[in-house]
Simulated scan of single mutants.
Amino acid sequence: MKIISMIPARYSASRFPGKLMQDLGGKTVILRTYEATIATNLFDDVFVVTDSDIIYNEIVSHGGKALMSKKEHDCGSDRIAEAVENLDIDVVINVQGDEPFTDKESLNKLIEVFKNDPDKEVDLATLMVEIKDEDEINNPNTVKVVLDQSNFALYFSRSPIPYPRDKSAGAKYYKHKGVYAFRKQAILDFYKLPMKSLEASEKLEQLRYLEYGKRIKMVETDVQGVEIDTPEDLDRARKLWK
């Protein structure tokens, strides 16, 4: 089974433009993420895929591998699909460019999902972490997921799901971490399917898979890390790096 990692990287992020080129302990965020992914030794190859000459040059100038997107893309999955279409691979893992604390244990759990799925029932797998802080549960920037009994995703939302009408019911809340592992065919299918209303409403690309009947296996991790979406996140990351 050939497994690679792709790190989609846009320069003009809506909430924090240029965040991937910000300094984190003497190196840029995107270079830190790339090096952390390489350091896991889990992949046959690792690429940054970008629409930005600045990011492309940052990776290549430090001896890394980067690909330039040929088309404009609305989301990271589309960018990866274009990049892997003609590659001889089985599984591609999407590591977010703004997660420099990506860890080996969590990525290995995703890989194990496919190694233990001989009947190919899983189209993609992704990470989640339990959250208990009410502010985080209610924060629309924190994407929540609800599951069936086999840990397949039922729905993702920026809203608090499940709604706590009965707080004594003991429902758990899970935050979705945007690290995905795809079978190659699943991501190529995604690339060709039009966006539908749920994805358009919530602005969550994973809902396209659910709307078209794909099965998303959720894998729990206890590694929180720091996703750099805002300048405040970058401050937290710098403190954590020290």
Rank of each mutant, 00 (worst) to 15 (best):
S69V: 06
L204E: 02
A125W: 01
R158F: 03
I93V: 14
K65C: 07
S12Y: 14
R15K: 13
K172Y: 05
D23M: 00
I30F: 03
K196T: 15
N151D: 14
A186Q: 01
E205A: 15
M195I: 10
G178C: 02
D233M: 02
V223A: 09
I161E: 06
E99I: 06
T40N: 04
V226T: 12
I131F: 08
I93H: 09
T102L: 05
A171F: 15
I55L: 08
K242R: 12
V48R: 05
T142M: 09
E134G: 02
K175R: 15
F114A: 02
F156Y: 15
Y209H: 14
K239D: 10
R183C: 07
V223Q: 13
A153E: 10
M218N: 03
S197I: 12
K19Y: 11
E134R: 13
K144N: 06
D133A: 06
E85F: 01
K167I: 15
R208Y: 04
D123V: 01
G18E: 13
E82G: 06
N139W: 02
V48F: 12
A153I: 12
F152Y: 15
K239T: 07
D103I: 11
S168G: 10
E99Y: 14
E35V: 01
K177D: 00
G76V: 00
D119A: 12
K115V: 02
R183K: 07
H73S: 10
E205H: 11
T221P: 09
P17E: 09
I59C: 04
I59E: 07
P17K: 09
L110R: 07
L42P: 11
V48Q: 05
L42R: 06
D117W: 01
R215H: 10
N141L: 10
D53H: 14
P231H: 00
R165T: 12
E105H: 09
K27F: 01
R15G: 01
H176V: 11
D44W: 03
F101L: 03
T33G: 04
L127Y: 02
E35G: 03
S69W: 01
N57Y: 06
D78M: 10
E211T: 10
K2Q: 08
A169M: 13
K175E: 14
N94S: 14
G25Q: 00
T37R: 02
V95N: 07
A181W: 05
V84R: 04
D78T: 13
P118I: 06
L124E: 02
L154A: 08
D233C: 05
S197E: 15
L240Q: 09
G18V: 11
Y56A: 04
F47D: 00
A125F: 02
D235I: 12
R183L: 08
D133T: 03
F47K: 05
G225A: 05
F47V: 06
L234P: 12
A81L: 08
V219I: 15
I38K: 13
I131A: 07
